[in-house]
Design a binder for these strands. Structure first.
Lengths: 182, 182
DNA sequence: GTCTATATCGAGATAGAC
DNA sequence: GTCTATCTCGATATAGAC
């Protein structure tokens, strides 16, 4: 049931998906849905919190590995990419309906968790600068913002003739570390 | 009036903004809005088409300059960035409510124009590969998708302590051509 | 656990007085 | 050109029968 709703959310976004469509997909009528859930919001909550728990675990695991910043970032990109793909419903919700969720107290944890993710990225980028691994003129916050957006979006286009997750990840990592210049 | 609505769309997205809020901001009642516009959709249409006309002009101008691919891409990034900032309402609409607009025949031009933008990016990337300026293993379509997303998003965060447009552009161009490695 | 029927609400939009 | 009043519609959610 949650998975069904998630499929629809992933396709059309959260707000654009009606409970009637979810019920249709489940082969029941909309009223019957409320035997399984108290609200559409609580479905969204379950999907979003499950996603963030898992992706935060990826980030913390990468940091805990004790490697250098380049290795930590690479591990983050590689592990979290697959998590993102598995949770593309959550990602679609964050992308399409961010302003909606961000405004609600119930979803305050979204901001908190994203702040932790930002701290990890900027921390590793800074560490790389200090070690002389990354360019000294790198603005860590700005770079993080550019990069996270890039990283979170590919899930969006996994429909027509799509790239595999690993293709996207490899292209991303090359771009990140080396740029496009020959 | 359009500018007022645009401000609200930029802040909260198109769907999340009600005509009553637009009227409030204008100091009139919602019914009175319809003396100025026949529908909320037509406001959205005006904002979106105005944006795309202008940004396409930037792209075509850069291509017409006759420079090499690196210069063309750099010019695109520099000129269109400022256009994006001026049209952040349109950008917020595309980001928050893409699925909504993409589904409507009235907004079919969105897909068409974005396809032209994609053709220009991939064309220049390919030309750079052919000239040996860019890495031979670059997937032009994949790279374009990664880059356009990055480029279109910074407008989103121009609120707290924000970066200037030029800061963002410079960081983006360095990342693009050289990566983050020292 | 699903049905029918309906309550409730918010949104976009309209009509006609002033 | 703005007001009041109201229509219409679609969406979430509820109540109670089966």
């Amino acid at each position: 049931m949650v998975r069904l709703a998630g499929e629809l959310f992933a396709q059309k976004g959260y707000r654009a998906t009606t409970v009637r469509e979810i019920a249709d997909a489940a082969g029941i009528l909309s009223g019957s849905l409320y035997h399984h859930f108290d609200s559409k919001e609580s479905i969204g909550d379950e999907i979003l919190s499950g996603f963030l728990d898992e992706v935060l675990a990826d980030y913390r695991g990468a940091v805990a590995s004790g490697d250098g910043p380049r290795e930590v970032l690479e591990q983050i990109v590689r592990t979290s990419s697959h998590t993102l793909v598995r949770h593309r419903a959550a990602l679609a919700m964050l992308q399409n309906d961010w302003s909606y969720f961000a405004a609600q107290p119930r979803f305050a944890y979204l901001r908190k968790d994203l702040r932790e993710i930002e701290r990890i990225w900027t921390g590793e980028l800074q560490r790389g600068k200090d070690l002389g691994l990354f360019r000294a003129d790198l603005d860590v916050k700005l770079t993080y913002r550019l990069l996270r957006e890039i990283l979170w979006i590919p899930v969006h286009w996994r429909q027509p003739g799509g790239f595999s997750t690993d293709q996207v990840v490899d292209a991303f990592l090359r771009l990140l570390f080396e740029g496009i210049t020959a």
